[in-house]
């Protein structure tokens, strides 16, 4: 850890409190050496309308996804991206964004694929910072480029492919999409673009816990007891479980991956980023419609 952790009492109950910082903590450390603040939003222009002083922008789509193949960028591109943002391998990175940190969590998850060690979320994200009337600036930050090593992505620990999901049956799956998508009434979140899934419904045996239930009204994460009620009591997760979370393209489930891994301390959680846009169009995979999870087929 290059920059000390936020030891706020509010975070101490979580499994990995060092993964969160509060707006107060960040405000007083904006100039701290070794700290880079990253904004990552759904709306690609939001950063330009005003951002936390000194923050750099990383866009999930244009920066983190490979422009040709449906995959994340490789180690060389990641190194060049982070270096250009003034981020070194030992930099403390604090990510924040719109929509309860939905896309910020996605960026954090991609950073984790490359093993960037110290990456944290600003609890409450952009909306909380703004609501508290804290400083925002419009000029684009121009960090000095630094060297970031080329590190190969390690997908296996936190990323699941379609075949991994087929082999996972019998273990818990969490579907974090809206109830309408889960039951198969629609293939996209209400008010979101149709992304071309050919079938609607959910992966058999998946429990439905829409991602947003982990966030409070102000965009901060819910307290530990409420998260336990949601994922342990309602979804039935137990210590030691191997869990796969999915949504539509893996963004909302990154938020849930963060909650399960860093707040609740589950050690084996993977995000299936192919998610419904792959599963709902794949040939010969099992699908269940309706609001019940359905039974898990034999793993294959």
């Amino acid at each position: 850890m290059t920059v000390e952790v936020d030891s706020s009492a509010a975070f101490s109950e979580y499994a990995h409190p060092e993964r969160l910082v509060s707006t107060e903590w960040l405000q007083s450390r904006l100039d701290a050496p070794g700290l880079v603040v990253v904004e990552s939003d759904e709306d690609v222009l939001l950063y330009e309308t005003g951002h936390i002083p000194g923050a750099v922008k990383i866009d999930w789509h244009t920066d983190l996804n490979d422009p040709v193949e449906r995959d994340y960028i490789d180690g060389a591109r990641f190194a060049s991206l982070l270096g250009s943002k003034g981020i070194s391998r030992d930099t403390t990175v604090v990510i924040y964004g719109d929509k309860s940190n939905w896309w910020a969590a996605y960026a954090l998850w991609v950073f984790t694929l490359f093993g960037h060690e110290d990456v944290r979320l600003l609890d409450g994200g952009r909306a909380k910072w703004e609501a508290e009337g804290r400083d925002m600036v419009t000029e684009t930050s121009t960090p000095t480029s630094v060297d970031y090593p080329v590190v190969e992505r390690r997908d296996s620990e936190i990323r699941a492919y379609k075949d991994d999901v087929l082999a996972h049956f019998g273990n818990p799956l969490i579907d974090v999409r809206s109830p309408e998508e889960f039951s198969g009434q629609r293939t996209t979140a209400p008010a979101y673009p149709e992304e071309g899934s050919l079938r609607a419904g959910h992966i058999p045996s998946a429990r439905s816990i829409p991602w947003g239930r982990a966030a409070a009204e102000d965009g901060t994460f819910r307290p530990l007891d409420e998260l336990n009620a949601l994922y342990r009591d309602e979804a039935g997760l137990k210590d030691g479980d191997s869990v796969i979370a999915y949504c539509r393209i893996g963004e909302r489930s990154s938020h849930t991956w963060f909650v399960l891994t860093h707040l609740l301390g589950f050690e084996s959680v993977r995000n299936y980023d192919g998610s419904w846009t792959e599963w709902g169009s794949a040939v010969r995979v099992p699908i269940v419609k309706g609001s019940e999870p359905g039974t898990a087929p034999e793993p294959r």
């Binding site: 690609v44 222009l45 866009d59 789509h61 244009t62 673009p193 992304e195």
Partner: peptide, 14 residues
Amino acid sequence: TEAVSPLRIRGMTA
């Protein structure tokens, strides 16, 4: 499409 991603452009098409 390059600047904002094809996915986002769909909103404008709609």
